[in-house]
Design a protein around this nucleic acid. Structure first.
Lengths: 150, 150
DNA sequence: TATTGTTATACTCTATAACTATA
DNA sequence: TATAGTTATAGAGTATAACAATA
């Protein structure tokens, strides 16, 4: 398994470094988008992690956010106080509370997502062909990484 | 200005989305590296933002971290208490305090940096030629974005 | 007994506003 | 007057440990 290519070539390290640099430069924009929406960064992550049609247990959200479950309680308390999320009993296990986005939550989530999806200015320097190659290479990396803990 | 290429093509949006997905999947690793070093994520950022030979004013660090200056005081207090950073008076302006990494600070900074530079598993799926193309495309985006607010 | 979620506690991060000491 | 940094304050994020309800 995994004889497809070399591991950790200098080129791969340099590519990863370039990607980290680019991501770091965008940190401020993410914080700004959150602030525009009246959200803290963790609240923004939580809202993005919830899917409209799919109620999910709180423990699930803790897993996605990579934080302790005790943390999610307060996080959801604040989102629920603003009417963005609701807690609902789960059908077959009364210990579990399902999280459901309200209509207001869905609207805010979509509005935030649109802003986050806008590429940084630098992407305008790419031709369509270059953008396509970049997209395909990134998808290849993501696909190869996800099965085994990326 | 900026007639080099198309703006916000669908390919560019898709490339940016792929990159955000990849970056998000690595968030947990960064937190883990910080924890290994006994640092909080902001403390890790601060340590990485300081350059060994170059003393920098605290306001400078606030700019890089994109947080309020009042925040930097406590952040540096904690790093200084652990002997990683020192405050020194600036030569020509006695209002300014220069931040200097100690030897211990430099050692920890380098150790953390090494871990952060390790590419995620998915990069092993790229051939050297592919990694090089990915690196060059990312650098092109970064270079085009940095002069005007990226 | 094990698991889901909450509470209690303690610490860190964060911004705003008021303050100091310089300039 | 303006700027660099601190302090005071308040709120939010974070993990650990102890707990209730349920399985």
């Amino acid at each position: 398994m995994d004889t497809t290519a070399g591991h950790l070539t200098p080129e791969a390290v340099e590519a990863w470094t370039a990607m980290r640099t680019l991501a770091m430069a965008q940190r401020g924009r993410m914080v700004a988008v959150a602030a525009e929406a009246g959200l803290s960064p963790p609240q923004l992550f939580a809202l993005q992690a919830l899917t409209p049609g799919e109620p999910a247990p709180m423990s699930n959200l803790a897993g996605v956010l990579r934080c302790d479950a005790s943390n999610v309680t307060g996080l959801i308390d604040r989102l629920a106080a603003r009417g963005l999320v609701e807690r609902r009993p789960a059908p077959h296990d009364r210990r579990i509370r399902h999280l459901v986005l309200t209509d207001a939550g869905i609207a805010l989530r979509d509005r935030v997502r649109e802003r986050l999806e806008e590429p940084p200015d630098g992407f305008a320097a790419l031709s369509p062909a270059e953008a396509r190659r970049l997209r395909d290479l990134l998808r290849k990396v993501a696909a190869a990484g996800s099965p085994r803990r990326a």
